[in-house]
Write a protein that binds this DNA or RNA. Structure first.
Lengths: 145, 145
DNA sequence: CACCTTTTGAAAATCATTTTCATAGGGGGT
DNA sequence: ACCCCCTATGAAAATGATTTTCAAAAGGTG
């Protein structure tokens, strides 16, 4: 099980891309952080340690993460694209709290199966899908809040 | 079954908003057009008949359609928000062809049920959800293309 | 170590969408 | 029908996320 660091380095090598200290710093920061973060959030986190790294570089590097497969782009409609570490193979979907912004992941094979049925009925070849459920999480829907 | 025209007019009246010729023209054009269209597409369609109507007015009016309930905003991630006429009550989801851009609607009660189960497990209160399946439609995945 | 190519950072450019602001126009009250 | 007040409109500027430009600064390969 190659880790994300080596997957990314291999991706870079395979595509004749260079290993720079900026990319390394951004990778480390990304791997350390919790999931679902915006380019802006990552940029700000990195800025404290590496004030010289520019916004554009963070954007460009996150795109590379997505291309290499170690990260996935998520557009939950908040105006900003979020990136999350991809957990090889297994697909998951999201519950998104409109109250506190929490993002809860879940996996449901039955739903996946039913989606495949729907696609089959339409002779549609699936390449990807997304299921997002919006609402209020347990905390935000409790009377105390 | 009040039609969309009257629903919208009532919404306007109820909120002290005015009935203008621009809004009427935009409404008519919107009701006439096929579903899932961008503000830009609607603006261009209207421009031929009403060259005086501005881009901003189309944006503002589409937002009103969404607020009034006669239309729904959809963000399929193509950079532009699309609007579709809302078909009373029933929820549907989408198959989106990456080849020709076709958007196929479908409804599946079993999937909805499973979503409710997932939400219940997380004590999550659903307000809305979206399920989008991306891939190739029958036409685009056939060998001839 | 040289050289060629990619990368970087800052600033400018894009693109969809929103806002500003001065003018025009609904529509309720008279 | 006329006023008057407030909303609506259009053109242009503003916004905000993301992308591109471009000259200067490295990778890394031979």
């Amino acid at each position: 099980m190659p880790n994300k660091r080596s997957i990314f380095r291999e991706f870079m090598a395979r595509n004749g891309l260079k290993w720079t200290k900026q990319r390394e710093a951004i990778l480390e920061e990304f791997l350390d952080s919790k999931e679902h973060l915006s380019t802006e959030a990552l940029y700000l986190a990195i800025r404290s340690k590496h004030p010289h790294i520019g916004y554009a570089t963070v954007y460009r590097t996150l795109k590379l993460f997505a291309e290499s497969g170690i990260a996935e782009e998520r557009d939950f409609g908040g105006g900003q694209v979020l990136y999350e570490l991809s957990n090889r193979g297994d697909h998951h979907d999201h519950l998104i709290c409109n109250g506190c912004g929490a993002i809860i992941e879940f996996e449901d094979q039955s739903i996946e199966k039913l989606q495949e049925n729907v696609a089959r009925e339409h002779q549609f070849k699936i390449t990807s899908h997304r299921l997002e459920i919006f609402g209020l999480c347990a905390k935000c829907s409790s009377p105390k809040h």
